[in-house]
Design a protein around this nucleic acid. Structure first.
Lengths: 122, 122
DNA sequence: ATTATTGTATTATGAACTTAATACAATAAT
DNA sequence: ATTATTGTATTAAGTTCATAATACAATAAT
């Protein structure tokens, strides 16, 4: 899963989302060490300050913690991670259904349209 | 449908989306006149310059046109409007399914989760 | 003990966005 | 004919965002 960044949203906000995604999908498992700020920034091709800002936000949310000069680590609490994943999915669903509703589509109509789409290959 | 604006995206971009939505859902029917820039800006509680920017974008997309000093009008082409609505829905679905896929959910799993949600009341 | 890496902080610069305050030409309304 | 409303343009100011270039203390690695 590459870093996909657009231009119509603040970078740091997008980084938060992508890092969350990497954590809840096991790219960085519970308890594992994250690459350093500088490494992550290089990977995502952004300024270290910007990556730092995203990481601080993740720490505020309790998804990662900092070990003084050793680096940052994903929380040990597997439950916290699973809960975050669930919340992310629920938020996606809620927002999507609301958007479709605003466009005038009922749940049934939306389901029908989804069924006609191609499954994303792995 | 009220103006719901957040802070993590440029205002004018959000205004474009909301205006599109109002047009494709018939709040402003084909051929009808839009409120003036100043009126729309007041409604949305934004600066006229910002609303102007959004309207220019809508005009570039061919959804509205300008009559010199009389005001702006929704396109007469009903097909154009329906097509836009369809594109908006397809874009929502594609993005949603991709996001869910990134979280590790298959189409079937996603459908199941949607089925468990409450239908939004009208 | 020395070196390298860690997170963190600071200052400066520029771009994008938004608001504010006007102003003007064209024309619809009166 | 006069007035009001229309889209449009301009200039200034402030905020947020992002990058760049450093610097420093703590500590892991050597």
């Amino acid at each position: 899963m590459a870093w996909s960044l657009q231009s119509d949203r603040p970078l740091y906000a997008q980084l938060v989302g992508q890092l969350q995604r990497m954590i809840v999908t096991g790219v960085y498992p519970a308890g594992s060490r994250l690459p350093s700020v500088r490494e992550l920034a290089a990977e995502a091709a952004v300024n270290p300050n910007t990556m730092q800002r995203a990481l601080v936000k993740l720490e505020e949310d309790g998804l990662i913690f900092t070990q003084r000069t050793s680096g940052r680590y994903v929380t040990e609490e597997q439950e916290k991670i699973m809960e975050t994943k669930k919340e992310m999915a629920e938020q996606l669903i809620f927002q999507f259904m609301e958007d479709m509703s605003y466009l005038g589509y009922t749940k049934e109509q939306t389901m029908t349209m989804i069924n006609r789409t191609e499954e994303k290959s792995k």
